[in-house]
Design a protein around this nucleic acid. Structure first.
Length: 270
DNA sequence: GTTGCGTCCTGGACGC
DNA sequence: TGCGTCCAGGACGCAA
């Protein structure tokens, strides 16, 4: 499922082909999650950006075309407009160069919005999004401050996108494993927060370097699968031996999210 | 304001 | 083979 590395891979591929292009026609699935797509017709895409897992494309009329890929969403630019036969296409935009931008989303967990720039009233997660993990302002102290204000499980706090933006279930498990922090802890010391901040960047960088993680659905803007699933240390490996200590990794559902961790390398501390 | 839980959604895996 | 059930998960709404 698309997290920060997957979304950023798509952003970097779309930017050169979408920037400066006018949206001349559009269609959307009738679900309210996607009907905003047609609101962007007639505008020109000024840039292709990203905040956390959101693709945010400033338009030339002061609004933004915002796309969240959900779990199974993908965006592709194609010269072949034969999208009518694909039941999982949720929206498309015809570009002024003859190409078509296609949003495909099997499970319909994605979302499209056209909003005034920076006015995210109807999107509470985007409105309260934490710092980007590669922003210089994000460090151990920033993460520690973001985590200590809540008594929820540390992993649940990370997935809320408030302490830091762009981390989903896969990279959260990887980061906790790398940092030796138990995802079910509710408190964290400043030094461990610093280690976790470093681990978050390491896990996400691995995803970026390997073109994203494809477990089932994810493909980039060129239709290619990622390779990071072959470089995961923890996520999805419950019952397998820990790479550091050979103890079988444990798996449980934590706040409705499947969580994998090493009981020896990641002992409960708080 | 915070927390916990249900809902959305559908393909694939699995058991019978 | 076919059917029913469960699972996966990000964001959001709602009740407490």
């Amino acid at each position: 499922m698309p997290e920060l590395p997957e979304v950023d891979t798509i952003r970097s591929q779309l930017a050169p082909v979408l920037t400066g292009r006018q949206l001349v026609a559009s269609w959307s699935h009738p679900s309210a999650k996607f009907t905003d797509a047609v609101e962007a017709v007639g505008t020109t895409i000024d840039a292709v950006g990203r905040r956390g897992k959101y693709l945010i494309n400033p338009l030339d009329d002061g609004r933004e075309l915002i796309v969240h890929l959900g779990m199974t969403g993908s965006l592709r630019v194609t010269a072949d407009p034969a999208t009518d036969d694909d039941p999982y296409v949720r929206a498309w935009w015809d570009l002024d160069d003859g190409n078509r931008l296609v949003f495909r989303d099997v499970r319909r967990f994605g979302r499209i919005a056209v909003l005034e720039a920076g006015r995210y009233d109807g999107m509470p997660t985007l409105a309260s999004l934490g710092p980007d993990p590669f922003d210089p302002s994000f460090d151990g102290d920033a993460l520690w401050s973001g985590l200590r204000s809540s008594g929820r499980h540390l992993k649940t706090q990370l997935l809320s996108q408030r302490p830091v933006a762009g981390v989903g279930n896969i990279y959260a498990d990887e980061a906790f494993w790398l940092a030796g922090v138990n995802p079910a802890d509710r408190r964290i010391t400043r030094p461990r927060a610093a280690a976790l901040a470093d681990a978050i960047r390491t896990a996400l960088r691995s995803g970026l370097d390997h073109g994203g993680t494809t477990l089932r659905d994810y493909v980039d803007a060129d239709g290619r699968s990622g390779d990071n699933q072959h470089h995961l240390h923890c996520y999805g490996r419950g019952g397998e031996p820990c790479e550091r200590c050979a103890t079988p990794l444990r798996r449980r559902v934590l706040d409705a999210r499947t969580t994998t961790w090493c009981p020896v390398c990641q002992p409960r501390r708080g």
